[in-house]
Amino acid sequence: MSTAAPSTSANVSGPRRRRIGPGWARSIARHALLAAISIAFALPLIWMAATSLKPEVQAAAGGMSLLPDPPSKTVEYAAANYKAVLADPTVNFPLYMRNTILVATLSMAGMVFSSAVVAYGLSRLKWRGRGPVLALVLGTMMIPFPVIMLPQYLIFKELGWIGSLKPLWIPAWTGGAFSVFLLRQFFLTIPRELDEAAAVDGCSAWGTFWRVILPVSKPALAVVALLHFVYTWNDFLGPLIFVNHRDQFTLALGLQLYQSQAGNIEWSLLMAASTMVVAPVVIVFLAAQRFFVEGVSSQGLKE
């Protein structure tokens, strides 16, 4: 393109760029625009939480206030809604919460461990056939889930896993293409001197992996863990197909059941249930925002 002129100096204090209007006016305009966009993106979740605080009559009435009337009764009204959801006779949210935490944790542990092992083999060991295996890993990212979900169901049935939570977490212990790729990219950046020092000290490949590479890769491992945890927490189609007994439902399935079986939707209760499903994800995100952003950023660098 026309502008790719190689410059000898990356010095930022070059000639001033041409600007439209004074700097502070442009800055204010940018902030205003970004604030409006941010509010628009946050509004659905804010409205969800706000609805869950109101008695149904007020939720279904007009107006756009975020708190119930009178606001002093917010806690009381909210508690009533959440209690009603948790005590629903047919939809056992506490059990689904337990199932989801169990599945997400087991799945996350397996995904991190196995992907790290495979990524190490594909980055810091040199062997014939490494290239083709890596290409295969990347190629599988293109396979749509619908192509494999029906045969997977039959395989899980053959293995006797249907009717348990196993289909939702055991496959994660074989690693995943995206996680392997992400960790491989990270492992490639670790200085080779670390390996050499370990080798001089008599460390085996496994020892190097376990005692040298893994400890310095904690941020990347955290990225994989968090992204996979959220992925499992949110997954809908997988549980929908592989789980057929209510005792094994996850929160995603439970929420859908809760909505579809209600004859007459009470929005305040539905939003309270939704808030319970969303809240853990929001908390995890707020606590570890940096890792999410790093993990997702690196997706664009496959080239």
Binding site: I37, A42, L45, W47, M48, M271, S274, F292
Partner: peptide, 19 residues
């Protein structure tokens, strides 16, 4: 700003459908 825009991508599909 980035957090506000990014957060919705983490909301479970079922929950965002309800919302």
């Amino acid at each position: 700003y980035r957090a506000a825009v990014f957060l919705p991508t983490l909301v479970p599909a079922v929950a965002s459908a309800m919302v």
